[in-house]
Design a protein around this nucleic acid. Structure first.
Lengths: 241, 241
DNA sequence: AGATTAAGTTAGGCAACACTAACTTAATCG
DNA sequence: CGATTAAGTTAGTGTTGCCTAACTTAATCT
């Protein structure tokens, strides 16, 4: 019996390993549809840096394997099977990120790229050992929640820093993880999960947002601010007007 | 520019990432030929659990990329490029094994399978960080030498326990790593790198070999003994006759 | 409603890898 | 030396995943 490649059969209820490409598609669809909304072919293509034609083909295969429901020209929705697979990959990815950062001192702007490759190769046992070794973290280094072994994830939506009104204080809970350059910059500014800040002022017409971060004054643009998710602090609520 | 797949070009002197399959072939050929001897198609096929036909095809491609020199019907020899690539993969593999064992308490019978997949996904940076984190080990958990970052490896050949004469003492330096069952058994018997033992007697006709291992008496077959590499201890040399 | 455009799809290729079946080369033995 | 056998090769196929080019569907605008 030589042929024991991945080969996804329709009758597989067992947890055969998925190919890296399949995992990437499911992750992307999950991210774009927040798990349940219908997702457009083009958006998947853009996120994965593929052509729409490629996505059309793959999406048909994924639907054939029961990972998503698909009507031509109508977008795509994850099935339960697909959602669970996506969350499993997401857990891998985020545990790996947290481990690289926490145990190997990886700088937070490089964990994403490394995890992106390792998530397809690491076994559940490894991921669980990593999680245990760093104390079962609840989020990755960028503040993204880590799904539980059972596939549950905290889906709380947060306000972005761009939406926060002048005078309000907030704690940073999460930043977008994909742009290393941006992460390095945010790191320099000390804008990272856990940091507390106050919005001093917001210039109109997409102008700079002035902040106080751990005692330091600085200003960032609204585009960057929109990548920073925050939780308003109730004890600093009163606007300064 | 969408097409940035591995796509190995002939003019690549740069270190493009190789595909997992290519790395596996090069590792296998290195292992079979000790790095320089010519290797038979069939042996590669057997080691990788592939058909000889598949190997013929791949070998032609690898030769085209300059990883090995190949004459039809005549076997295959690694070029310098191929040898370096093989040693790079070997380093990854063994550092990962050592790390899993040393930092994550992985049992030594399972590190091989995990490393087999991770070695194709881990970056040099990760491998170097792992090595640093556990004190730059010189061998993996089975005693196999880890190539240096520069691609040098200790190629000392050792005696197998099956070849050691009765009455001799020796230190275990290395055991074969691929059979988890066997590793578990050797572990129970405390036969692992660093252990010291004395050959009490060897029954003729492939009979059992009686040993004293850390004070305990036990006997193993010659087939198993041949998988255990040892270094004779000069201070225990005198046969007990 | 008809035309334009954006979104999505099919058709046709290609590269990597693997397989089976059938053939060829090399080695060996009487 | 010719025949058998072992080793290795080619030919033809299939799957995954990706691409480009050309077409179709759906949405939108006048």
């Amino acid at each position: 019996m030589k042929g024991k490649r991945p080969h996804l059969s329709i009758t597989d209820s067992s947890e055969e390993p998925l190919t890296g490409a399949v995992e990437d598609y499911l992750k992307a669809i999950y991210a774009l549809g927040r798990g349940s909304v219908s997702v457009a072919t083009n958006d998947i293509a853009q996120r994965l840096d593929l052509t729409p034609a490629s996505v059309s083909g793959m999406v048909r295969r994924l639907a054939g394997h029961g990972f998503l429901s698909y009507e031509r020209y109508r977008g795509v929705t994850l099935t339960d099977l697909g959602r669970r697979a996506a969350l499993r990959t997401l857990r891998r990815h985020r545990v790996i990120e947290a481990y690289l950062s926490g145990a190997l001192n990886y700088p937070w702007d490089r964990v994403h790229a490394e995890a992106e490759r390792l998530e397809h190769a690491a076994s559940d046992e490894l991921v669980d050992r990593m999680a245990a070794a760093i104390g079962e973290p609840l989020t990755d280094p960028h503040g993204a929640p880590i799904p539980s072994r059972e596939g549950d994830m905290d889906e709380t939506e947060y306000l972005s820093l761009a939406e926060l009104g002048a005078g309000y204080g907030a704690r940073v809970v999460r930043v977008s993880d994909e742009d290393p350059e941006m992460l390095r910059y945010l790191g320099e500014l000390q804008i990272m999960p856990g940091a507390e800040l106050i919005v001093i002022s917001k210039a109109p017409y997409e102008g700079p947002i002035a902040l106080a971060v751990s005692g330091t004054m600085l200003a960032i643009g609204p585009q960057l601010a929109s990548q920073v998710m925050v939780e308003p602090l109730t004890d600093l609520e009163a606007p300064a007007h």
